[in-house]
Design a protein around this nucleic acid. Structure first.
Lengths: 247, 247
DNA sequence: CGCCGACTTGACACCAATCAAGATAAGTGG
DNA sequence: CCACTTATCTTGATTGGTGTCAAGTCGGCG
């Protein structure tokens, strides 16, 4: 049963992801224990796994498909915090409750693990716990990186980041043909990079006019110049700010 | 030795902080162990504790003073990810390295804990580890909340969030006189809420013109209408977006 | 008193959200 | 297979928010 409950460390966002970071660290005995408390869930498209503010009884690991994690503010704004792809873990509670909602974007197969039992297992197996701890630390730092990107990059740069991120793994990118299959529609994409669908379209148009990408269909993007995308992502240098103390 | 290594759970950002969330959960025996491997650090103003990308040998807990955690992008942009106040823990490694820089804003006293030994202690005491795990989960979710705020709120709302957050604890807010003492200057404040110092000043001016706050000095703010600030923070309602599937 | 840094305000340009409309693709029924 | 409807995506025009540069004000300190 290859890949069963294999955790993924590569984050969806952030170029800082190093291949060596792959956690993927459950021993055989740990996997057996886990398997005994795990339920396999088959989900259709557009299905809600759990909702914001609900009691968090389970955590989940993606085996197949795409899940989106989103949060709604009181004023009605929605934001997609992450897309979870196979190997990702989600559903960690905060004060016993989910802080975001999880919905399937496509069909999906999930592993559902009761949090209560997971917690006991973590206490019994400190090494496993440390593994998860490390993963959450990593996710935390990735969230901080996202904060940087969202505040200091414009829509075009954020889109470039997104595309590069997808092109990093083989799941969506055909390396030889340089063709990228987007797993989400424009609305979700826009909510993820923190802008409007229209702005996202404009950003695509700009990257296209720069000769960096080519829209084949709305979900199929040909990457013409990966290095050029990276330089867009970086953006121009900026003069050092005051108050900036360097080591 | 009251309050020694007492962890703080209330995050600096985010109204979602519940008082019950206070972790503060080290048993006496755990505290003794910790103390034996802890070094007390006295720091002057504007001192670098550690730098981004450096090897992460220690983690830190604030006893006194304010620390700012910042990150620099390759293009020179700086962002302040958090201000750490007494009780906060920081310096968690990612692949053995610090992902951000830590500098004292004011004089400070820190507890320095070798990460290597801490890790062993975590393995030996799963309950302690679970405590830290919970804290990191919480910080992670707070970071996600910050992502929401930075993308969906304008400068004025973000400033209101910041002020309300400060006014939440007694450290900086004189509840009876409604006077708030800002622990940081405008540059740091701007870099924290993700805008320029000038925009921050304008945001202050607007809140003042709305009769919600009153600038006594640049570092001393009188809060005139806390509820009004909250409604600014919330912002106007927004019509539901498409693609938004509700439970 | 005068200098200097921190803060504020003004003017301008640019980016992005919004509303509106057109274009393309996908799904449906004849 | 084609006409029709619908959803999705794109483009255009307009408006408001925010970064930037520049100048001005305030306060502390020698």
């Amino acid at each position: 049963m290859k890949g069963y409950l294999e955790l993924r460390a590569r984050p969806f966002e952030g170029t800082a992801a190093t291949p060596g970071a792959v956690i993927n660290l459950l021993s055989d005995t740990q996997q057996k224990k886990l398997r005994s408390i795990t339920t396999v869930l088959e989900c259709k498209r557009r299905m809600t796994i759990f909702s914001q503010h609900g009691e968090a009884h389970f955590l989940y690991v993606v085996d197949k498909g795409i899940i989106r994690l989103s949060r709604c503010a009181e004023n009605g704004h929605r934001h997609i915090l992450a897309f979870m792809i196979p190997g990702d873990l989600f559903g960690l509670p905060d004060n016993g409750r989910y802080v975001d909602s999880a919905e399937t974007v496509s069909e999906a197969r999930l592993y559902q693990i009761p949090w209560q039992q997971m917690q006991q297992m973590m206490l019994a197996e400190p090494q496993l716990q440390l593994t998860l701890f490390t993963k959450v630390m990593h996710d935390f730092h990735q969230a901080q990186l996202r904060i940087m990107h969202l505040t200091k990059q414009n829509t075009c740069q954020r889109l470039a980041s997104f595309l590069l991120d997808l092109a990093d793994g083989p799941e969506f990118f055909n390396q030889s043909r340089h063709v990228l299959k987007l797993p989400v529609n424009r609305f979700d994409l826009a909510d993820f990079i923190g802008s409007a669908p229209e702005s996202t379209a404009r950003a695509f148009a700009k990257l296209e006019s720069l000769g960096l990408v080519q829209r084949v269909t709305s979900r199929t993007i040909e990457i013409l110049d990966q290095e050029g995308l990276r330089s867009v992502q970086r953006g121009p240098y900026v003069t050092g700010k005051p108050n900036h103390v360097h080591a």
